[in-house]
């Protein structure tokens, strides 16, 4: 037996010993999660990024290597560029409202009393509803002719507002529905963060004569900065991937004014063509955008913490 084999054996024994130890056996318990993560996240990510260089159909039996052709096609595809524009408009409206609006609402309902608990439940209710039921509900409420709100506004002499079929208005309606749907989760996360702020800070501020607004600006906001960054990053990534609400309410119309990037990707992959390669390319472009924004924000957050 040479020294090389002995070293290998020792290594093997050390690995076995590690996995038998209390620390190492923990990996057995996270094994299912790791498997799921690999199968449903990591492997698809690599497959998708590879597929973006191929012209592939749905059954993957016709796969041709096309190099960067799909990327060239994407940046000359007016519908893809329009979908990016729509996505950015949507994100530019949704993210500030979610990040700052939810913070203000959270400050108002942070104290643990019955009224605030009731409002927290109300705000959180849409979060647990499916996008399908939310889409159908708002379609019924805002339908251009038989909608409840449309009728009510019309009865008040405000005219019949065509919420879902107006090229200038509909993007805002979709954004509103999306904010309404996920506003609760941001607010509840903020509430938790605000409740964890050291009470002595508020007492000191009060002693210095600070009112509620001054306490909020000078004590609450700086204390919950990590939460602020967390919500900013997650909402930004979520908004850039908007799909379900668009799919359920407008389908991207009217005249593609609400067609988000993910909606367009879906249509290339499943509705119109079965262009899995091209759809993967656009997904990769969106992925790079989201990753870049997230990394920049993450660095900024870390810099602030230092």
């Amino acid at each position: 037996m040479d020294s090389k084999t002995t070293r290998k054996d020792n290594m093997f024994i050390r690995i076995c010993r590690y996995f038998r130890s209390a620390e190492g056996s923990a990996y057995y318990f996270i094994l299912p999660s790791i498997l799921l993560l690999l199968i449903f996240n990591v492997i698809p990510l690599f497959v998708s990024s590879s597929m973006s260089f191929f012209d592939a159909n749905m059954t993957l039996d016709k796969v041709n290597y096309v190099g960067i052709d799909n990327f060239v096609k994407a940046f000359s595809d007016s519908r893809f560029l329009n979908s990016l524009k729509v996505t950015f408009i949507f994100t530019a409206i949704e993210v500030p409202v979610q990040v700052f609006g939810a913070m203000i609402i959270a400050a108002l309902i942070a104290k643990n009393n019955i009224t605030n608990k009731f409002f927290r439940a109300i705000y959180f209710l849409p979060v647990i509803c499916s996008a399908t039921s939310i889409g159908i509900m708002w379609k019924m409420i805002l339908h251009s002719n038989v909608g409840f709100l449309t009728y009510a506004l019309s009865s008040m002499g405000l005219g019949r507002i065509n919420f879902f079929n107006n090229t200038h208005l509909t993007i805002f309606v979709v954004t509103f529905i999306s904010i309404w749907r996920s506003f609760g989760i941001s607010a509840i996360v903020y509430v938790t963060a605000i409740q964890n702020v050291n009470a002595s800070l508020y007492e000191a501020a009060k002693m210095d004569g600070a009112g509620n607004l001054r306490q909020f600006i000078n004590v609450t906001v700086p204390s919950i900065r990590p939460t602020f960054w967390y919500i900013l990053m997650t909402r930004l990534a979520g908004s850039l991937q908007i799909f379900d609400i668009v799919f359920m309410t407008t389908g991207g119309g009217p005249n593609y004014t609400t067609e988000s990037t993910v909606s367009y990707v879906y249509s290339r992959a499943f509705s119109s063509e079965a262009s899995m390669g091209y759809a993967s390319t656009m997904s990769m472009i969106l992925f790079v955008i989201i990753m870049t924004v997230t990394v920049l924000l993450y660095r900024r957050m870390n810099a602030e913490e230092r």
């Binding site: 019924m140 339908h143 251009s144 002719n145 038989v146 065509n162 879902f164 079929n165 389908g251």
Partner: peptide
């Protein structure tokens, strides 16, 4: 003709 993306609801509503 209404400018709408859903005529089914209107037909079943008798409009």
């Amino acid at each position: 003709n209404p400018l709408t993306d859903d005529t089914d609801s209107m037909m079943t509503a008798g409009q």
